[in-house]
């Protein structure tokens, strides 16, 4: 298994010792977090069962809908955000992101998605929801399914229409989508209270204890990677599983990817798998025209897939996540 070799935690981590993985994770989190506890009173988890009413107790009401008054505590199933966002106290940036390369960051985390290897199993979606406690109805990562090619005339084809024979010359392409952790993130610039930030190692995060939930960042993201969390009532997004990355592990979606389509690593390290893949293969990013400098690169994307919203052009077959609320409009291409 590929794991990015260098990591910020002080505890050395050997990826071959799989049986010690869990204990190493716990230990690294603990050791790495110790000097970062500037607010130890907040960091201390409450006693189990304290402050838990029957109405919000997942034992009695396991659905997210019942969690009307969330306290972002560990015993509510939430991560302890005071430890988790930046245990090593990396410099954080709310704007002027061009200063990040000048600061000589030790790592620059990025992801390469090899679209040739994605089988569309949605294991990444499930593992992300499970790892990060993502509420119903919203997603941090999702896999859209596109279809390229067309039905072409073929004398030996198996489709018979009006006496003519056709063959379906189509390919299904699954496109995993995730927050791009842009190097020039518009969502971070627009936050009025500096609740969202870009860490020196490139990960864009939201502090849910500061966010006022105004929704500006949700509207500002060209990739719709942010959402308003219906439980915490704050903006929320993919974190690259920051607590796992800080512990020297891969994000949950990468770990669970059955085709090894998702590869995570340090783009600053020329020997990392992501760097080698990007050197070896041509890659694209989503919506480069916005100038956001996405750090999630796609290899093997079909050129037939565009970002055009017209269904006839975009060739999206379906998505698990957007059909509930959307309507398809008539083709308006030829007007005026």
């Amino acid at each position: 298994m590929f794991t990015h070799a260098s990591k910020p935690g002080p505890e050395p981590f050997d990826p071959s010792r799989r049986s010690f993985l869990r204990s190493a994770f716990t230990l690294t989190i603990g050791v790495a977090a110790l000097p970062a506890f500037s607010v130890p009173a907040k960091a201390a988890p409450p006693a189990p069962g304290s402050g838990t009413k029957t109405g919000v107790n997942p034992k009695y009401n396991p659905s997210w809908e019942g969690w009307g008054n969330p306290r972002l505590d560990i015993d509510d199933g939430w991560n302890n955000w005071h430890n988790i966002l930046n245990p090593d106290n990396l410099p954080i940036y709310h704007d002027v992101f061009e200063r990040i390369p000048e600061s000589r960051p030790a790592h620059h985390w990025g992801m390469v998605i090899d679209a040739r290897k994605c089988v569309g199993c949605q294991a990444c979606v499930v593992s992300c929801k499970s790892e990060n406690n993502v509420p119903l109805g919203v997603y941090r990562t999702w896999v859209d399914v596109y279809q390229t090619g067309d039905t072409v005339p073929d004398p030996d084809g198996d489709i018979l229409v009006d006496g003519e024979r056709f063959r379906m010359d189509v390919r299904v392409q699954s496109v995993p989508k995730i927050c791009n952790h842009c190097d020039n993130p518009p969502c971070v610039d627009v936050c009025p209270v500096k609740a969202t930030f870009k860490r020196q190692d490139g990960i864009v995060l939201v502090d849910p204890t500061l966010c006022i939930g105004c929704g500006t960042c949700v509207n500002a993201c060209p990739y719709d990677a942010r959402y308003l969390n219906p439980v915490s009532h704050t903006a929320d997004k993919c974190t690259f599983c920051v607590e796992r990355v800080d512990a020297g592990l891969d994000p949950a979606c990468v770990t669970s990817c059955v085709g090894r389509s998702r590869i995570f690593g340090d783009l600053n390290d020329p020997d990392s798998e992501v760097s080698r893949l990007l050197v070896e293969y041509p890659s694209v990013v989503r919506h480069p025209e916005f100038g956001t400098k996405p750090q999630v690169y796609y290899i093997g994307m079909s050129g037939d897939i565009t970002t055009d919203p017209d269904p006839n052009v975009q060739r999206m077959v379906y998505t698990y996540t957007s059909n509930a609320n959307n309507s398809v409009v008539a083709d308006v291409d030829d007007r005026i």
Binding site: N219, Y223, D224, P309, M316, N325, N326, S327, V328
Partner: peptide, 13 residues
């Protein structure tokens, strides 16, 4: 402005 989808198709209802 928000009825136009950013990543999906058609219009947001």
């Amino acid at each position: 402005g928000e009825l136009q989808p950013k990543v999906s198709q058609g219009l947001v209802r």
